[in-house]
């Protein structure tokens, strides 16, 4: 027992425990989110959703995951083999690493870095590489379409996303995520930065390729976009990464605008998860309400509306900070 405590106390032990915890969290979270998405979609569409496996279909996703694992992994004949096989792994790794710096509560954080925000945003940018790899290697016109769209979209939306989160960072004066939460002791930043919150949610939806910005996998146009040629658990990994990405952007929104783990009565991590899932519900709500935007409109929207507004917001914040 003493040994265990000593091992956990070291940095390496902390990393190992964190890694195991993160993998467990990622899988449980994805299972839950997929179930949640199905239920949210179903109830918005006046139907019950999965009901058969488990209580209200609670373990339906596990059944689906088992099915995916049992499926044959088909590698189409003309693919660029190594890149094709690497893409599902590349899409998943940065997602895992982002969890390193997310503070689930005051103490529950694997590594509290002073550049936490930058780390997450840098890793988020890697996802696009995986999508490009998948689309390009698939040797399928629809898949190439999807991946090219994805690159353009991510480049366009990374900029307003960064500028938007700059405003709260300016108010705190630190890139450390725990500092940002700590600065929201009196009020949440959503009160002082409502525009930034709206902009952030919009950009985050686009970053995670969710409807109405799900152009890389636009079903009615591109069949399945970049993962058209993937089957079985390879497809499953893309799927898993999408939902984990959603968790990460929602977690960032919670940290920046909703006061992180702060909240009465309940322990910090419960509050944190509650807020995260509330944000995710919002993103799901978008998906099941809106039609998809067109590709050029999407880019226009980013450059003509989001980026100017984000800059305006940043300037305004800076001005107010200076005057105060």
């Amino acid at each position: 027992m003493d040994n265990l405590v000593r091992i956990l106390g070291t940095d390496l032990g902390r990393m190992l425990a964190g890694l195991i915890g993160v993998i467990a969290l990622v899988s449980v979270n994805a299972l839950f989110l997929i179930w949640m998405e199905r239920k949210v979609a179903a109830h918005m569409q006046l139907r019950p959703g999965p009901m058969e496996v488990g209580w209200h279909g609670a373990i339906q996703t596990i059944a689906d995951a088992l099915k995916l694992m049992g499926k044959e992994l088909i590698t189409p004949a003309e693919v660029d083999r190594s890149v094709y096989l690497l893409a599902p792994i590349v899409v998943f790794l940065p997602v895992l690493l982002s969890f390193l710096v997310i503070p689930f509560s005051q103490t529950l954080v694997i590594r509290d870095m002073n550049v936490g925000v930058l780390l997450i945003l840098a890793f988020a940018a890697l996802t696009v590489l995986a999508i490009l790899m998948a689309g390009w290697a698939s040797n399928n016109k629809y898949a190439v379409f999807g991946s090219i769209r994805s690159v353009a979209q991510n480049v366009a939306y990374e900029i307003p996303l960064l500028i938007t989160v700059m405003s709260p960072i300016l108010m705190v004066g630190s890139y450390r995520l725990t500092d940002i939460v700590a600065a929201q002791e009196k009020f949440w930043f959503i009160v002082s930065q409502p525009l930034a919150f709206i902009l952030y949610i919009t950009c985050a939806t686009a970053e995670t390729n969710r409807a109405p910005f799900d152009l890389p996998e636009a079903e009615s146009e591109l069949v399945a976009g970049f993962h058209t040629e993937y089957s079985g658990m390879r497809f499953g990994l893309f799927f898993l990464a999408e939902y984990t990405n959603m968790f990460i952007v929602a977690a960032l929104a919670t940290i920046f605008f909703l006061g992180g783990w702060r909240g009465p009565v309940l322990p910090g991590w419960v509050w944190f998860l509650l807020k995260v899932y509330a944000i995710i519900f919002l993103i799901m709500w978008f998906r099941w309400t809106f039609p998809r935007v067109r590709f050029d409109q999407l880019i226009t929207f980013a450059w003509k509306i989001l980026i100017p507004l984000a800059f305006a917001n940043l300037l305004l914040t800076a001005l107010v900070m200076k005057l105060m």
């Binding site: 569409q45 006046l46 009615s220």
Partner: peptide, 16 residues
């Protein structure tokens, strides 16, 4: 048509 444009939910309202 809304399904073509990527909105799933109106489809089911119409079907209802």
């Amino acid at each position: 048509y809304l399904l073509d444009l990527g909105a799933f939910t109106p489809f089911l309202y119409c079907f209802d």
